[in-house]
């Protein structure tokens, strides 16, 4: 299988504290990989390094076989956990801007998700409910029809129905042509079935990486695995 993303011994420190400590893994074509770990384990930093938003201090990152650059940005959609460009805009303004920013942006895909989430185009993004806002930002990512979808804590702070809608949208995207997904989360409950592979981060290091079904057979469930590894 083709490797879309490859990290070799990647490290990053902030103010003398190692946030990401010698992490290596690969994201292969056709795979959905979950990056699990408690808050502060280094998940967000690792994702930003993976998509090229911040540089690693050490190690090597390869995205589509090269260093992350403006060229690879076209094929990666990143949903950050905070700090969206849509602040202060209406939904339709944000859609227009996204259409200009992103080559290949497909307003039809976005429209479908907006209708499904009952988001009106005239609404202001910061007036949407948390669930709607999350679905809106996911819609902007999916409308780009990226090869790689990277999501940072997409379910954080959402009610159960919004979480389910987000999970469904991500599954639909995988079935519909997004080649690979890399998603961080600290809450395994909604995502037991979503991942092909799971990476567990702890204190900036990689403490486990395996097939989800294998881990389920070994530990009883991903939830159980998470608890056992974190305690141990």
């Amino acid at each position: 299988m083709t490797e879309l993303l490859r990290l070799d011994e990647v490290g990053k420190s902030f103010r003398g504290r190692k946030v990401v400590d010698g992490i290596s893994f690969t994201l292969r074509q056709g795979r959905a990989v979950g990056l699990l770990g408690p808050n502060g384990a280094g998940k967000s930093t690792l994702l930003k390094i993976a998509v090229g938003l911040i540089a690693a201090d050490s190690g090597k990152v390869q995205l589509f076989g090269g260093t992350p650059s403006w060229r690879s940005f076209e094929r990666v959609a990143f949903l950050p956990d905070r700090g969206h460009f849509t602040r202060g805009m209406s939904v339709s303004e944000a859609l227009q801007l996204a259409g200009r920013l992103y080559p290949g942006f497909n307003p039809g895909t976005a429209r479908e998700i907006l209708e499904d989430a009952r988001i009106s185009r005239g609404a202001y993004v910061n007036e949407l409910s948390k669930g709607q806002e999350a679905r809106f930002h996911l819609a902007l990512c999916l409308a780009r029809r990226p090869a790689v979808l990277v999501l940072d804590e997409p379910f954080a702070g959402l009610d159960i129905l919004s979480r389910e809608a987000m999970v469904e949208a991500v599954i639909g995207a995988i079935a519909g042509g997004v080649q690979s997904v890399l998603m961080s989360t600290h809450d395994v409950d909604d995502v037991e079935g979503l991942f092909d592979e799971v990476i567990l981060l702890r204190d900036g290091g990689l403490s486990l990486w395996d097939e989800a079904e294998t881990l389920r057979a070994r530990y009883g469930s991903l939830r159980q695995m998470y608890k056992e590894v974190m305690r141990g």
């Binding site: 056709g30 795979r31 959905a32 389910e164 999970v167 469904e168 599954i171 639909g172 995988i174 079935a175 519909g176 909604d190 037991e192 079935g193 979503l194 991942f195 092909d196 989800a212 079904e213």
Partner: peptide
């Protein structure tokens, strides 16, 4: 379809 069942069951389409 694979997509429908995956979305209903909240599992990966590969599964």
């Amino acid at each position: 379809s694979v997509r429908e069942l995956a979305q209903l069951l909240k599992v990966n389409p590969n599964t």
